[in-house]
């Protein structure tokens, strides 16, 4: 049967719902926008992806953002005030971003499993650098704006490469 839904628009709707259910309630401002965008490939950005796989097919979902935006969102999500002053040490912020995508994808996983999909959820892949999409992969990206913070939610059917650490 493979992985459902078959189209990325369906995945976008499911991902937005999972974001609404898990991430948004922890934010200081719970109003958000979710607009289609391009994938920003910038060596300074941070990203975390997980793969949802079934019967040889795989969908990768992830978040990407500027370190300051990621730090702010992670701080709000986990209630720590000291993350935004971490300077150039992004290890804990990336750790937090990985945990957020794990939580959001976990909600997706539960929702899809209850519909009869047998999905495996991978360990997060962390990226400090450019995201490179190989030409043939299908993808869609949405800019999630919560208050002053922008985080891009990305869905890819196919592989991701780490270009630069």
């Amino acid at each position: 049967m493979g992985i459902e839904p078959k189209n990325l628009a369906g995945w976008s709707d499911l991902l937005e719902q999972a974001v609404k259910d898990t991430l948004i309630p922890s934010m200081k401002t719970q109003e958000y926008t979710w607009d289609t965008t391009d994938i920003v490939s910038d060596p300074k950005r941070l990203a975390a992806f997980v793969a949802l796989s079934s019967a040889g097919e795989s969908i990768q979902v992830g978040f990407s953002g500027e370190p300051s935006d990621v730090a702010s969102v992670v701080s709000q999500m986990f209630g720590f005030d000291d993350l935004e002053d971490a300077g150039d040490d992004y290890s804990e912020i990336l750790d937090g971003l990985a945990e957020i995508i794990n939580i959001v994808a976990g909600a997706l996983h539960r929702s899809l499993s209850s519909d009869g999909n047998n999905l495996q959820l991978s360990i997060p892949l962390l990226i400090h650098g450019e995201i490179v999409i190989q030409g043939k992969e299908e993808w869609v990206a949405h800019r999630l704006t919560i208050g002053d913070n922008n985080i891009d939610a990305i869905i890819i059917r196919g592989l991701i490469q780490k270009q630069k650490d």
Binding site: V74, F78, G79, F80, E92, D95, G96, A98, E99, I123
Partner: peptide
């Protein structure tokens, strides 16, 4: 495995 999660 996440140090931040353990803190939280």
């Amino acid at each position: 495995d996440s140090g931040l999660s353990r803190r939280m």
